[in-house]
């Protein structure tokens, strides 16, 4: 799934490891989500959205909308 996670992370000046620690996941997970190779579960998507103070749809692009 396309997403704006990398951009948001960069705006906060966080490395993948920084974000991984804040989300309590591995750096590999952050990398896989950022590159669209892995779609997070709904609880993890909420956690990401809450961390950045956004709605889920502000970060993740609906597959039906490209």
């Amino acid at each position: 799934m396309n997403n704006h996670l990398r951009t948001l992370r960069a705006e906060h000046g966080w490395s993948q490891q920084d974000l991984a620690e804040r989300l309590d996941v591995s750096r590999q997970s952050v990398n896989a989500i950022e590159t669209g190779r892995y779609d997070p579960s709904l609880p993890l998507a909420f956690k990401i959205a809450e961390l950045f103070g956004c709605a889920i749809e502000d970060i993740f692009v609906s597959p039906s909308r490209g």
């Binding site: 996941v25 591995s26 590999q28 997970s29 892995y38 997070p40 579960s41």
Partner: peptide
């Protein structure tokens, strides 16, 4: 394992 990606 709490990391869902690693589980996958």
């Amino acid at each position: 394992e709490r990391d869902e990606y690693l589980r996958m």
